[in-house]
Design a binder for these strands. Structure first.
Lengths: 102, 102
DNA sequence: TTATAATATGAATATATGTTCATATATATT
DNA sequence: AATATATATGAACATATATTCATATTATAA
C-alpha cells in the first residue's frame, strides 16, 4: 500500500490560492460579496447599502474583478456587478455559516 | 412564497470569517498548513522542510494557534504541531485542488 | 454643447503584515 | 551548576493594504 501523500504545492497554485483567500480576508470585500449572494447590484447601490465611499467600493470591485470573483454589465451610466465564481462563493457561504454558529 | 434572503452579517461573524481567511491568505502559512496535512511536525522540522527561519515559523504557528487552526503537544524540548480545524483544512484542500487544475 | 450622474483611477496616507535579528525561556544532558 | 538544544518573544524594518480625496472617464439628458 502507498501512503496517502499530499502533492507538492507549485508556485503558481500557491499564489493563486493565497490571492483568492486574500480577497476573502477583508471585511469590506466579504460584505460586498455577501450582498451579491442576492443578485446583481450597481456600484452606488452597494456603496449606499454598506455605507461605504463610492471610490472604496470601486477599488474593491476592481480587486474582485481582477480575480474573476465578480463580473459586471453596463446599463447606461450604471454598472451592475454580480458574482462570477461559484466555488469561492460556496466557500464563503460555508464559512459564514460555520462562524455564525459561535 | 418568501424570497431566499441571505441573513445579516453581524460584526463578530464578519471578524471571525475575515480572520480565518487571513490565516489562509499568506503563502507561508498555506505551506505550513499544507505540510500538516500529512500529520504532526516539530517547529524545526517545518522550518527545515520549507527552508524558513525558525523564528518566522514560530510566529506563524502562534498566529495559527491563536485562531485554533493548529494545536501542539510537547515532547521534551520538541514541540509538535498538528492541524486542529477540520473545516478550514477541508476548505484549504478544496481550494488547492481547484487552483491546481489551472 | 453644456450639464449632470455613475463609475473609475491615481496619488497620498495611515495602518497592518511578514520577516529578521537578538535574546529569552524551557528542557535535557553532562 | 554549566552547557546545549528547541522554541518563543519583542523590537525593528520594509512592504503591502485599505481608505480617502481629487479628478478623469463615460454615458445620458437638457
Amino acid at each position: 500500500m502507498e501512503e496517502n501523500k499530499i502533492a507538492e504545492l507549485d508556485e503558481e497554485t500557491l499564489f493563486l490560492v493565497s490571492q483568492t483567500f486574500k480577497a476573502l480576508a477583508d471585511p469590506t470585500r466579504i460584505r460586498i460579496l455577501h450582498l451579491l449572494f442576492n443578485g446583481e447590484l450597481s456600484v452606488s447601490n452597494i456603496a449606499e447599502t454598506l455605507d461605504l465611499n463610492q471610490s472604496n467600493v470601486s477599488h474593491q470591485l476592481r480587486f474582485l474583478k481582477n480575480l474573476r470573483l465578480v463580473k459586471y454589465r453596463r446599463d447606461g451610466k450604471t454598472i451592475y456587478y454580480s458574482q462570477d465564481d461559484e466555488h469561492v462563493m460556496k466557500i464563503l457561504q460555508q464559512s459564514i455559516d460555520h462562524a455564525s454558529h459561535h
